[in-house]
C-alpha cells in the first residue's frame, strides 16, 4: 500500500524548517545591513564584530559603540514591531475569515491612536508611563475592531463590506487623531505628528527593553492556539465539532491582535499594510496551518519592516531633506498595490 499522507506531511514539515532557517538568516543579514546604513556608513563586518564583542561583555569603544547602540534600538524596534503587526494581521484574517484584514485597513490603528492622543490630553501625567499608553491604545484598538465589525454586519458582512467599514472607521479616526495630535503638540511642544504614519527612528534603548517582552508574550500565546485557530478557519460549526468554542476563540484572538496593534502604535505609531502582506506571503510558502504560518509570518513581517526602514534611511541619505520620511509611507507604497491585487482577485471570482 503506497501512502500519500505520510510523505506529504514530512515534505511539508521539512519545507517549513528549511524556510524558517532561511528567514532567520535573512532577518540577520538585513539587520546587519540596517545597522550599517545611516548618515555615517559603517562597515558591516565591524558592526558584526562589535555585536559579538558586546554579547561577550567586552568593551568595544569608539564611534561604532555609540552609533551601533543608537541604531540597534531602531533595528530591534523594526524587527519586533514588524513581527507584531504581521501577526496581528494574520490573526485578524483568521478570525474574520477575510484575506483582506489588516489592523490599519480595519481601522484599529486609527482608533488606538485616537485613544492615545485623548489620553495625553486628558491625563498627561499618566501618559509618561508606557504601560498606560499601551493600555489606553489597546482599549482604542478593541473599540475600533468592534466598530468595524458592527458596521460591516449592517452592510451584509461580506469581505468587501468589512474592508469598506474599516476604511470608514480608519478615515474618521485618522482625521480625529490628527486633530487631537495637533492639540497635543501645541500643549507639550513635543512633535507627536510622526505617530500618524509611524517611525522607528525615535525609538530609544529603554523603549526596546519594554517592547520586546510585550510582543513576545502574545506571540507565544497565539502559537499555543494553533489548533483552535486551524479548526476555526472552516467555520464555527467545524470548530465546535472539534471541541473548541468559536466565540471564545474569536474574543481571545481579537484581543491578542488588538494588543499587538496597540503596542506597536504606542511605540512607533501607525504603520499599515505589514499585517496584510506578510500573512499572504507566509501562507504562499507554508500553507494555512497556523503552527507553520505564525512563525513564518512573524519573520516575514520583521523582514518587510526592516527593508522598509532601510528604504526610509536610504531616501533621506540620497535626497538629504529635512528629517526622514515616516515608515508608514513606505509600507503604504508597497502594501496598497498588493491590496488592490487582492481585491481584484476576490471580485473576479
Amino acid at each position: 500500500m503506497i501512502s500519500m499522507a505520510i510523505p506529504l506531511y514530512e515534505r511539508r514539515l521539512k519545507r517549513f524548517f528549511y524556510l524558517l532557517i532561511l528567514f532567520i538568516i535573512l532577518v540577520f543579514i538585513v539587520s546587519i545591513s540596517s545597522l550599517s546604513i545611516g548618515p555615517a556608513m559603517l562597515d558591516p563586518i565591524k558592526v558584526l564584530q562589535a555585536l559579538a564583542f558586546k554579547l561577550l561583555g567586552r568593551d568595544v569603544g569608539g564611534l561604532i559603540d555609540v552609533v551601533a547602540k543608537l541604531r540597534l534600538a531602531r533595528t530591534l524596534a523594526s524587527i519586533f514591531c514588524g513581527a507584531s503587526l504581521a501577526l496581528a494581521g494574520l490573526l485578524m484574517q483568521t478570525i474574520t475569515r477575510n484575506p483582506l484584514a489588516d489592523p490599519y485597513i480595519f481601522g484599529l490603528s486609527s482608533t488606538a491612536l485616537t485613544a492615545l492622543a485623548l489620553g495625553i490630553i486628558l491625563a498627561p501625567d499618566l501618559m509618561i508611563q508606557r504601560v498606560y499608553v499601551v493600555t489606553i491604545s489597546f482599549i482604542g484598538a478593541m473599540i475600533g475592531f468592534t466598530l468595524t465589525l458592527l458596521l460591516s454586519k449592517l452592510g451584509g458582512g461580506s469581505d468587501i463590506a468589512m474592508v469598506l467599514a474599516g476604511i470608514a472607521v480608519a478615515s474618521l479616526f485618522g482625521g480625529v487623531s490628527h486633530i487631537l495630535l495637533y492639540i497635543v503638540q501645541s500643549m507639550t511642544k513635543v512633535p507627536y505628528m510622526y505617530l500618524l504614519m509611524g517611525t522607528v527612528s525615535t525609538t530609544l534603548w529603554g523603549d526596546v527593553q519594554l517592547l520586546i517582552p510585550l510582543i513576545i508574550v502574545p506571540i507565544t500565546l497565539s502559537l499555543a492556539l494553533f489548533k483552535p485557530l486551524n479548526a476555526y478557519l472552516y467555520g464555527d460549526e467545524f470548530a465546535k465539532q472539534l471541541g473548541f468554542n468559536p466565540a471564545s476563540i474569536r474574543i481571545f484572538t481579537a484581543s491578542i491582535s488588538a494588543f499587538l496593534t496597540a503596542t506597536t502604535i504606542a511605540f512607533i505609531g501607525v504603520v499599515g499594510f505589514i499585517g496584510l502582506v506578510a500573512p499572504h506571503i507566509a501562507r504562499f510558502f507554508v500553507g494555512i496551518d497556523h503552527k507553520f504560518s505564525i512563525p513564518t509570518t512573524i519573520f516575514i513581517g520583521a523582514l518587510l519592516t526592516l527593508i522598509a526602514d532601510i528604504i526610509v534611511k536610504a531616501i533621506s541619505i540620497f535626497i538629504g531633506g529635512l528629517g526622514e520620511l515616516p515608515l508608514g509611507v513606505v509600507t503604504a507604497v508597497i502594501g496598497a498595490p498588493f491590496l488592490s491585487y487582492l481585491v481584484i482577485k476576490r471580485m473576479r471570482r
Partner: peptide, 11 residues
C-alpha cells in the same frame, strides 16, 4: 464550509 482562506484538502 468556509473557503475564504485557501486551505488544502490535507490541511
Amino acid at each position: 464550509i468556509s473557503k475564504s482562506l485557501p486551505s488544502t484538502v490535507f490541511e
